[in-house]
Structure formats: structure tokens, C-alpha cells
């Protein structure tokens, strides 16, 4: 019992992973997908969906905002992870760089999600049937959860965490956010 208390965050993470795997391999995943169809049908009827479908130029402008926001978010991730890996801003205090990059990351995330939501409304039924769209949503969710529940707590306890662990965190973060961007790009090539 004391082990569970001492490693409660690790236990919670393992539980979330086990639930995720159970969701993926059972009928629940397909049932959830079917249940979400009305939501995606409704998304296309919203003002954002109608504008996105009818006004190609507006859709393209929002795509531009999405790309710029992705660059902002990516810049914050690369600078923060680069600092953890000892590649950039190595003479600046680690926690200061992490805290300030987190604010930029948050702004980038808000813009990415807002513009992404608009774009998804315009092509809701197309993306609903695209496997890569769901991979992107999974990667994005994993990235946000990783940032809040793994990365930040470890960085906050900088002194108590080994350099090796922090480097692993940085590599994992880079892989996750690269996956988000790459799957997002692949949506454009699919369907």
C-alpha cells in the first residue's frame, strides 16, 4: 500500500494507459466512433461549418492561422526541450526558460485548437472517416496530458530529478509533438 502512495502518479499513469489500451482493443472504441457521427454531422451545419465549406478563401486564411499557431507552439516546444537536452539557452536558468516557454506554448495551443475546430467544422464528415484524423486527436490529447501531468511536474522538481530523466522527457515531448504535426499534415493528403 505504501508503494502505491509513494508512486501514486506513476500508478495513475499506468491505470490511464491500461484504460486506453482496453478502450482501443474492445468494441467500445467502434461504439464511441458510431456515437460521435451525429456530432460531426451537426458540426457541418454550424455557422463555422457553413462558412468553412462555402468560403474557400476564409478556410485558407484559417489554415494559415493554424500553420502560424503550429509554428508558435513548435517553437516553444523546441526551445523548452532544447534547453532540457542542453542544446539551446544553456546559460539561462532551466526553470525560468521552461516557465516562459510554457506561456508561449499555451498561446500556441489555444490558437491551434481554435483554428483547428473551425477547419474541422468545414470538413467534419471527411475527417470523421479519416483514420489519420483520429491519430492526430490522440497525439494532441497525449501531448497536452504529457505537458501537464508528466513534463511540468518533473521540471518543477528539477533538483530531485536526474538529468537523464529530464532528457528522456524532452525526447518524448519532441516525438509526441512531431507526431501531432505530421499526422495533421497527412490529413491534407488523405481522403
Amino acid at each position: 500500500m505504501s508503494v502505491l502512495v509513494a508512486y501514486k502518479r506513476t500508478c495513475l499513469l499506468l491505470l490511464v494507459m491500461a484504460l486506453g489500451i482496453a478502450f482501443a482493443v474492445t468494441d467500445l472504441r467502434v461504439a464511441t466512433w458510431h456515437a460521435l457521427l451525429p456530432l460531426f454531422e451537426w458540426m457541418e451545419t454550424t455557422p463555422m461549418g457553413v462558412v468553412g465549406k462555402t468560403w474557400g478563401a476564409v478556410f485558407a486564411l484559417v489554415q494559415t492561422v493554424h500553420l502560424l499557431a503550429m509554428a508558435l507552439l513548435g517553437g516553444a516546444v523546441l526551445a523548452a526541450d532544447g534547453r532540457l537536452l542542453g542544446l539551446v539557452l544553456t546559460d539561462q536558468p532551466l526553470q525560468q526558460v521552461q516557465a516562459q516557454c510554457h506561456r508561449v506554448w499555451l498561446l500556441g495551443l489555444l490558437l491551434v485548437v481554435a483554428s483547428g475546430l473551425f477547419m474541422a467544422c468545414g470538413v467534419a464528415l471527411k475527417v470523421y472517416y479519416l483514420e489519420v484524423f483520429w491519430f492526430k486527436m490522440l497525439a494532441l490529447t497525449a501531448g497536452v496530458l504529457f505537458q501537464w501531468f508528466v513534463r511540468r511536474p518533473l521540471v518543477d522538481h528539477y533538483g530531485a530529478v536526474s538529468q537523464g530523466s529530464l532528457r528522456l522527457v524532452a525526447v518524448a515531448s519532441l516525438v509526441i509533438w512531431f507526431s501531432v504535426a505530421a499526422t495533421g499534415r497527412w490529413i491534407g493528403f488523405s481522403g
Binding site: 509554428a71 507552439l73 513548435g74 517553437g75 523546441l78 512531431f178
Partner: peptide, 11 residues
Amino acid sequence: LALMLSLGMLF
């Protein structure tokens, strides 16, 4: 994707 590196740093 190179936008994230080039424009990310520039921003």
C-alpha cells in the same frame, strides 16, 4: 514541418 523550427525560433 520545418516551419516549427524556423518560424518557431523566429517568433
